[in-house]
């Protein structure tokens, strides 16, 4: 079971909206524990005067995702708050799923030598929201917001599958740092193997953001035993959400708790956890 609250500004963005995001986020939390999502409960907090048609549009998108995955929205609650006491709309979703017996995908399964596979390009969601917020027109940029259960379902049979995590807030950098800290092992990543789309790097250049710290909403990091990496990549490549999957690095015994990045210029540096709100900078 999982629960998460969703706020996003603006509420609607290329590639999704708060409704789709609230379902995908919860589906992905369940999927990363290897759980098939079955039921969702939906809590709605809306500001007085919120446009009903707009609201129904978000609910429709939420239910479309549920329908596609055979998830039932079993219960819900709506509260309307006086104008000014809430910024438009907040959604909370609670998801219930069913795990396979004996299948645990936590950080503690990671072993030195395991490969790390990233299923897609980084930073799309964060860059999309930032571009809207700061008035940048970026052709072709859209959030990667997507439910990832079907992708996870395809790879669950791999016996060498160690751990899965979706990169959400804080991006790739945050998950890698949490894995290094949580597993007390080191992580080594090759910058040139991480796909940063031009649309993301353009926004990052202009605002001074680090693409590895930007949120994704449709991208997984997978820890896998080295012998199964190739087969896993092949399996991922056959699906829409996994077609850009690549091996980005590995778990190593050296520098436990730290992530090191082999940079494009051939140097090495620490990849650290992003701190606080990501703000545009001129310096």
């Amino acid at each position: 079971m999982t629960i998460d609250g969703y706020t996003v500004h603006p509420l609607s963005f290329p590639g999704g909206n708060i409704g789709k995001l609230a379902v995908c986020g919860t589906v992905n939390d369940l999927a990363c524990r290897g759980a098939k999502p079955l039921y969702i409960a939906l809590g709605v907090l809306a500001e007085e005067g919120f446009d009903e048609r707009e609201f129904l549009g978000y609910l429709t998108d939420a239910s479309t995702v549920c329908h596609r995955l055979g998830i039932r929205i079993v219960t819900g609650d709506t509260k309307v708050l006086p104008r000014g006491e809430l910024d438009r709309l907040v959604l909370t979703t609670c998801g219930l799923g069913k795990t396979l017996p004996g299948r645990d995908l936590g950080i503690s399964n990671l072993r030195p030598g395991d490969d790390l596979v990233l299923t897609g390009p980084v930073g799309l969601h964060g860059a999309t929201i930032a571009a809207l917020r700061y008035g940048l027109k970026s052709e072709g940029l859209a959030s990667d917001c997507a439910p990832l259960w079907e992708l996870v379902k395809k790879i669950l049979p791999f016996p060498g599958l160690r751990a899965i995590r979706d990169c959400t807030r804080g991006g790739l950098a945050t998950v890698l740092c949490e894995w290094a800290e949580g597993s007390r092992l080191g992580i080594e990543v090759d910058e040139s193997s991480i796909l940063v789309p031009d649309t993301v790097s353009s926004v990052c250049d202009l605002l001074g953001f680090d693409p590895f710290s930007l949120a994704c909403e449709g991208c997984l990091i997978i820890g896998v035993a080295p012998g199964e990496t190739e087969a896993l990549l092949e399996n991922l490549a056959s699906s829409e959400e996994g077609r850009f999957a690549s091996r980005i690095g590995s778990i190593i015994p050296a520098h436990p708790g730290w992530v090191s990045l082999l940079t494009r210029s051939g140097g090495r540096r620490v990849l650290d956890m992003p701190a606080g709100e990501i703000l545009p900078r001129i310096c």
Binding site: A131, L136, K137, E139, D198, S201, S202, L206
Partner: peptide, 16 residues
């Protein structure tokens, strides 16, 4: 060029 002191610039995929 959109005015005496303004233009639209393109940087990568972004127009600003």
């Amino acid at each position: 060029i959109t005015g005496p002191k303004t233009a639209i610039g393109r940087a990568g995929t972004v127009e600003v």
